[in-house]
Amino acid sequence: MRVRPVILVPFLWLALFFLAPLAIVLRLAFSESAQARPPYRPVFAWADGWQVWLEKVKALGLSNFEAMLDEPLYADAFFSSVGLAAAGTLLVLLIAYPLAYAIARAPRDRRLFLLTLIVVPFWTSFLIRIYAWIALSKPEGLINHALKSLGLIDAPLPLFGNHLAIIIGIAYSYLPFMVLPLYATLEKLDWSLEDAARDLGATRLRAFWRVTFPQTWRGIIAGVLLVFVPALGEFIVPDLLGGSDTLMIGKVLWSEFFGNRDWPLASALAVMLLLLLALPLAVLRVLEDRRETV
């Protein structure tokens, strides 16, 4: 078979810049930390050959993973990551669903404009959007300032430096990711079905709940995954909006790497994060496959 450059060039590129780095992370996760530059001693040497590798796999250094289990900090970070990402995803869903529904029901000639309005913030810097929330939500920020001068509150609301801030931050940054797949499903629905349900005795709300909502499961799942997956590994949101006590894997990984310079442990955390993501991604994969066959 002829080797086509159009295949070969991207293939080699991806192998070098995607596959190889992942392999290195995996290798490092089983290595030992060292006070050196680079600060680790590899377990596997590329020159060893597979028989030596096999030996070493048997005596594999699981020390990094053991450390993760011994130190409750890491387990906590994983649990609270999942919890915060899930809560953030739920909040996004609650805001995005009515929004996507309203756009899908808007007059046809306005829909594209409204959709563009939702997507444009996605193009402006993520960092700046998070920064905008800092300005709003700090104890001396605008929200508290406004509420106080209106006399609605005495003490500032705890909107910053805690779990709530992270959840709102996730909702704010990932809203378009949820709106788009929901809109895509809603837009295809036949609205006369809601009319039919109302004709058969259902109120507006019941008609939505029994007829429209069950038909949008696929969009909901796609949106949830599109938000949950990146939110789980999020670093900027917990770092800038969360307090010093809020733990998320991304943040812990960052501080192990840059702060403690424990590269192997950081790699082990990364491997765990990847394993954690494997499940939702597999779900997404199955969903996509099913969509293709239907």
């Binding site: 805001i95 995005a96 009515p98 929004l99 529904y101 309203a102 756009i103 029901r105 808007a106 007059p107 409204l114 309005l117 939702i118 913030p121 402006t124 700046i128 959007r129 920064y131 905008a132 929330w133 300005a135 709003l136 605008l142 704010y172 809203l175 709106v179 507006r204």
Partner: peptide, 23 residues
Amino acid sequence: MSRFNIVSLVFGIAFLYLPILIV
């Protein structure tokens, strides 16, 4: 459009744009 839909739209878009506008 129903009132509920308009409220959802205004709220969603305000949520997205207000922080940026303030900056």
